[in-house]
Amino acid sequence: MPDMFPGTSLRPYDAVLLVSFGGPEGPDDVLPFLRRVADGRAIPESRLEEVSRHYLAFGGVSPINSRNRALVSSLRAELDRRGVDTPIVWGNRNWHPFLDEALLGLAGRGARRILMLPTSAYACYSGCRQYREDVEGALRRIGWTPPPVVERTRVYFDSPGFLEANVQAIVESFLRLASAGADLDRIDLALVTHSIPLAMERGSGEPDRPETRYTAQHEALARVLVPEAARRLGLRRIRYGLVFCSRSGPPHAPWLEPDVNEYLGRLAASGAQAVCCAPIGFVSDHMEVVYDLDVEAKATADGLGLSYDRAATAGTHPAFVRSLADLMLERAAVARGEALDAPPASITDIGPWHEECRPGACLEREGDVRVEAGRGRTACTSSGPAA
């Protein structure tokens, strides 16, 4: 796949800040990490203890931090290939290295304008606005005055590289199932993403554009991804469904459904023989992938007599890394006031996201009213803490 954006400079940005969720790196980290994630969300301690056992089954180590180290390394190599020497720093919202630590390092380097790249491909409160709010909170805590400008890349679920990485992963998963004895044309596809509360779903995407909501973003990707995977496999069609995992809120609050395990039950009842679970909602392996899909969903499938395989996440797939570099260079060109030679790349029918999210986008719940913070702009455009 060729470079979609041929720029060679990230000016005016002094640094790239990769912002991720974070995860524990040992057994003693697990409950403190989970309590930090759940702070203010009315999640019972019993639920946190239950989830802690998922981590402890893997030695108390989430895969996400090692995946982020690999992503930083791959992005560095890709930017070096293009002659871009802008530093890349990594900070987490919920565990070490915390955003505060990363931003203190950038303050020491004298950074004044920072490009944020979240490890979340989709636009909703927890995947977009909350990242910006957490950066603003970190800037306030460390007392960086005057604050820098922090701007993010646009969301990238619709980038060519994210599509390519997921298509290849699905094709490879189907072929593994076929080599194990499944009929290629009778394999079902479950496209898996993280569930969110229905209230957050209604506040997601751009205001007054229901076709940009969180689920609609996934469906737009699926309309391109599934036919392309079928074409490469020589199939007329693939039966698929969009399903959800990792519900974590209070029991009384409605979240997006169906749960992946419920969906597997439906497939078995319909006479399905084999299923590929493709975690298109995740950029890389999280505990939600390696436990919820590799352990829990696989056990459900085994109990139902379904052949099961989990497709890889985009991770450090070369095409995905190139698309992220393209997005960073594109954002820098816009920040410099340059006209783009071509429209921003997007493989879906809802078009590319705005470089700066519109006010009122990605609310925690529909109708939520928030103070527009930082340099007169919202946490969903460019950020610095409010004066």
Rank of each mutant, 00 (worst) to 15 (best):
H252V: 06
M1D: 07
E330P: 02
M200Q: 14
P258C: 01
D208N: 13
V167R: 11
F157N: 01
G40H: 05
D134V: 00
T153P: 03
L48F: 03
G376A: 12
R358A: 05
A312Q: 13
R236M: 12
R141Q: 11
A180V: 01
A311F: 09
T378C: 10
D29T: 03
G60R: 09
L329G: 04
E206C: 00
A274Y: 04
F21Y: 14
S46M: 04
E49V: 10
F21T: 07
A333S: 10
A387S: 10
A199E: 13
R377F: 01
R331T: 14
T212P: 05
V334Y: 05
G384R: 15
P197I: 01
P385M: 07
V369K: 13
S204A: 14
L79F: 15
L184C: 02
L264N: 12
A216L: 12
V260P: 08
P207E: 06
N261H: 12
V192G: 06
L175D: 11
L221Q: 10
S173P: 11
D188V: 02
T313H: 05
I350W: 08
P254G: 15
R132Q: 12
N68C: 12
A121Q: 10
H286D: 01
P250T: 07
G26Q: 14
E164W: 02
E364C: 09
G127P: 04
W353S: 04
A178Q: 03
H354M: 02
F320M: 04
R358K: 08
V135H: 07
Y131C: 00
S284E: 02
E330H: 05
A180C: 08
R81D: 06
G105R: 06
T86W: 09
E372Q: 10
A342S: 08
F21H: 09
D14C: 04
G374T: 14
N92W: 05
R47I: 09
